[in-house]
Design a binder for these strands. Structure first.
Lengths: 203, 203
DNA sequence: AGTTGGTTTAACCAGTTGGCAAAATTAATA
DNA sequence: TATTAATTTTGCCAACTGGTTAAACCAACT
């Protein structure tokens, strides 16, 4: 069986839930303890302070937030396949963690210096993406574009549907949750179509 | 002269600053009072509670956050001009209120029901945008696109550069504030180019 | 059974924070 | 000037919250 659930993991799971929902300032140690089904003092036994616990969650969340590009870059698949894989992967991650973007950006905004230090060595290398796109421009696969702008365009189009869920669902879809969900599933092909239409070189 | 600064306005200005920076949970009534240069009790004299004060700020912020489309729609300018004007206007607003998007989305996320009620009648009509885009598709000006996806694409590309400032400045631009600023100014033409490239009908 | 070490809990504390009541000050009106 | 009303401040409090301490519990080993 070994259903010997370990307390540290219980705490981390509950803490991630609460912090992502409420943010650091809105989160309560008591609520984290309750959701983990343990005593509040145990939080301080495993993690010394609220800040410590938060840092663990934030570091983890931020690494999840950064696009995982290493795996895609190394393959020798054609560029547009890489692009589609990138969009698929990122949207899947967001579907599983819809609160992630707002959480990361709100917290990093609250105290940039401190949090930037926590994530300094997150092993994200934008230079690789940059040079890949430049190569494709040179090869004539795609129109000349600034790589950074292209990346920001794509990320922006992926993030907003999730970050703006209450706004979109409430204003555009008249509180119809199904319509919103359908919209999310359409997103994959829509973003791909939109991007490829924009950058693919016409003959 | 009439520099008879009225206290209510002083409070509202300070409150907007603090709430946008720290969010509801992170904001302190004392700090708002300090920034307004008045006594804390005066906050409760003009606005009964922290919630009341926040609601006033949030309602205002949300209306600012929604794209102002009424003025654009009524003109008889060609579609692409309207589009460019829309992007210019929205990016200008964001330059003046860079904290707005994260603030609105974090707070609306914290308690959707309550805040949705506050902004119920904000006079934003997505249907007008929708039908305008449909008309252009029918007229053959642009490729067939789902209007909602197009709008979400554009808004997403506008928002992310501002919401992700610390991330972009820290990771992409190696903490070079000038490079980030230059990037922001480039955004206008880059978004326009990207969108128009994607949807303009080729002959 | 007794001992030892790690784990969990109950009880409590000190600092903070939103909010209030009453006094004090200023402005307006008679 | 006297009086009334509006605005501002001082001083305070009750509730909440992160954190601590000491006791209780529990498994493993002797």
């Amino acid at each position: 069986m070994e259903q010997d659930i370990n307390s540290e993991k219980l705490i981390l799971n509950a803490a991630k839930e609460v912090f992502l929902e409420k943010g650091f300032d809105g989160a309560r140690m008591q609520e984290i303890a309750d959701r983990a089904g343990i005593n509040k003092a145990l939080l301080h036994y495993y993690f010394r302070s609220k800040d410590n616990l938060f840092d663990a969650i934030f570091k983890d969340a931020f690494e999840q937030f950064l696009p995982r590009i290493a795996g895609i870059m190394t393959t020798d698949k054609p560029f547009f396949e890489k692009l589609e894989f990138f969009i698929d992967t990122y949207l899947n991650m967001l579907s599983e963690n819809p609160h992630l973007p707002v959480f990361v950006m709100h917290e990093i905004n609250r105290s940039p210096e401190v949090l930037i230090n926590i994530i300094r060595d997150s092993g994200f290398n934008p230079e690789a993406l940059r040079s890949m796109i430049k190569k494709e421009v040179k090869a004539g696969t795609i129109n000349p574009v600034d790589p950074v702008h292209l990346i920001v365009n794509i990320i922006g189009m992926c993030l907003f549907p999730y970050m703006g869920k209450p706004i979109l669902q409430g204003f555009i879809f008249k509180n119809n949750a199904e319509d919103y969900q359908k919209f999310l599933t359409e997103r994959k092909k829509e973003i791909k179509k939109f991007v490829i239409n924009s950058i693919r070189k016409k003959v």
